[in-house]
Design a protein around this nucleic acid. Structure first.
Length: 159
DNA sequence: GAGTTTGAAACT
DNA sequence: CAGTTTCAAACTC
C-alpha cells in the first residue's frame, strides 16, 4: 500500500504527513527527550508496508483500533482484513489516526519506536508463571529479566 | 462458540 | 508515583 502523499500548500513540500501532524510532532515535549524531530519521527512513524498475507488481523471492538491495545495500531500498521468493529485505523481516517498516534506518543514516547530495544520491557505477571502468552516476555521468546516485576516466574534464563 | 482469565495499556 | 479500570487476546470448557 502506498503512503498517501500530502502537499503543503505553503511550502509545496510533499510528505506522507499533513502540516498539522508535522506541527504536532515538532511540538511534542516528550519527544524531545529522545532527541528526535519531525523529520526523524516521520521515518520512525512511517507506515510499515505489509501485505495482506503478513498482516495479523485484530478483533478490536471498543477502541476504534486507535490504542495500543490494538496490535495493528501498536505495530504501526493499518488494519487490513481484520474483524474489528468501528475501525479508524485506516488511511481514510488519517488525521484522526495521526492524532491518536500523537496522544499515544505523549503517554509513551517509546511507542511505535522500533529503534528502541524491546528488552527494556518488563512484565508484571502474577498468575501465568510467565509461561503463557499472556506474558509479553514469553510471547517474545525471551526469558524474564531482573527488570521484570513478575511473581512466581518460571520463565528464567537457562543455566 | 461462549465464558473465563490474564496482564498491558489506559485512566484516576 | 500507586491503585483501579478497560481492553483484546489467550485460554478453557
Amino acid at each position: 500500500m502506498d503512503l498517501k502523499k500530502v502537499e503543503d500548500p505553503r511550502s509545496g513540500d510533499v510528505s506522507p504527513y499533513t502540516p498539522f501532524t508535522k506541527f504536532c510532532l515538532n511540538s511534542l515535549p516528550s519527544l524531545s527527550n529522545f532527541s528526535i524531530r519531525a523529520e526523524e519521527a516521520e521515518v520512525i512513524i512511517k507506515e510499515e508496508e505489509k501485505d495482506d498475507e503478513t498482516n495479523i488481523p485484530c478483533g478490536c471492538s471498543r477502541t476504534k483500533c486507535l490504542k495500543l491495545y490494538c496490535d495493528c495500531f501498536s505495530n504501526n500498521r493499518y488494519c487490513m482484513n481484520c474483524h474489528c468493529k468501528n475501525c479508524k485505523n485506516k488511511p481514510e481516517f488519517e488525521e484522526l489516526r495521526d492524532r491518536a498516534k500523537i496522544s499515544t506518543i505523549e503517554r509513551n514516547p517509546a511507542a511505535f519506536r522500533q529503534d528502541i530495544s524491546p528488552t527494556y520491557k518488563a512484565c508484571h505477571c502474577k498468575r501465568s508463571g510467565c509461561k503463557k502468552k499472556y506474558c509479553e516476555c514469553y510471547e517474545a521468546n525471551r526469558a524474564c529479566t531482573a527488570n521484570c516485576k513478575c511473581e512466581g516466574c518460571k520463565n528464567l534464563p537457562v543455566g
